[in-house]
Simulated assay, not measured.
Amino acid sequence: MKTTQYAFEIVQELTQSLQLISENEAEKLMESITESNKIFVAGAGRSGFIGKSFVMRMMHMGIDAYAVGETVTANLKEDDLLIIGSGSGETKTLVSIAEKAKKLRGTVAVVTTAPESTIGKLADIVVQLPGATKDRTESNYKTIQPMGSLFEQTMMLFYDALILQFMNKKGLDSQTMYGKHANLE
């Protein structure tokens, strides 16, 4: 198969995945983002990179948002939201972060393939995304892609869709957001 054929297959998988996301779950997360004082996003590996890109876009919109683990991350308080992106919902470091956020009386949301996972059970808000986890256990979801790629790509598109929804609600456009773009580059 040629590179472009693989790319078209990936797009087809993503189209199917996105159709399976619960609009109800997505709306709960959007409401929590809108109502929270600060937003924290955590993830490991590629999920963490995607989470950081989500934080960056929220910052561009004027939302007080942070990537967990960075030296400039603020402290989580009671009316703050922690969003964890984890395919398995079992990553030990992310479980610990979720537990800590609950102790601090923050709201915990998880974007995952596994709503019944440890983090899923700790979370106040669960958004289930279809896709296989990196080790392919407990998933019958079919994908040509390696490891957790389909989940990670679906999460990126889901986060970008949340950004567009927030922009629409707040009357923001790219030009307005560009005013908050880094300018020391």
Rank of each mutant, 00 (worst) to 15 (best):
K52Q: 13
D173Y: 10
S96Y: 13
L162N: 00
R136P: 05
Q16I: 10
K92H: 04
L29C: 07
E152T: 06
L184I: 13
Q12H: 01
S149W: 14
G179N: 13
A109R: 06
V110F: 03
E90D: 06
S22M: 04
K102I: 01
E9M: 08
I50K: 03
K170L: 13
G43I: 05
M156Y: 14
D160H: 10
S32P: 02
L162E: 05
L76G: 03
N24R: 06
S53Q: 13
E185M: 15
A98E: 02
D160N: 12
F158H: 01
E25T: 00
R136C: 10
I50H: 03
Q145C: 13
T3Y: 07
N140M: 09
M61I: 12
A109G: 04
L104R: 11
L162T: 03
T71Q: 15
S139L: 10
M1Y: 13
T118D: 04
S96N: 12
F49K: 12
T4R: 09
N75K: 15
K134R: 13
K170P: 08
I63A: 14
I163D: 05
E31D: 12
F49H: 14
S36H: 00
F49I: 12
L172C: 06
A44V: 08
F151S: 10
K28T: 09
N37M: 02
K102C: 01
E138M: 15
P146R: 01
K52D: 15
G87E: 01
Y159D: 14
E99G: 00
S139V: 11
S86M: 08
F158I: 06
G45S: 03
A161S: 14
L172R: 03
K102R: 10
N183L: 12
V126R: 00
R57S: 07
K180A: 12
I144Q: 08
L129R: 07
M156A: 14
Q5P: 06
G43T: 04
E70D: 15
Q128P: 05
G131D: 02
G43M: 03
K28I: 08
L20S: 07
A109P: 04
S174I: 14
T73N: 07
R57W: 12
E70Q: 13
S32F: 03
S149F: 14
I97Y: 03
S53D: 11
E13L: 02
K142W: 05
I10L: 08
G43K: 04
F49L: 15
I83H: 00
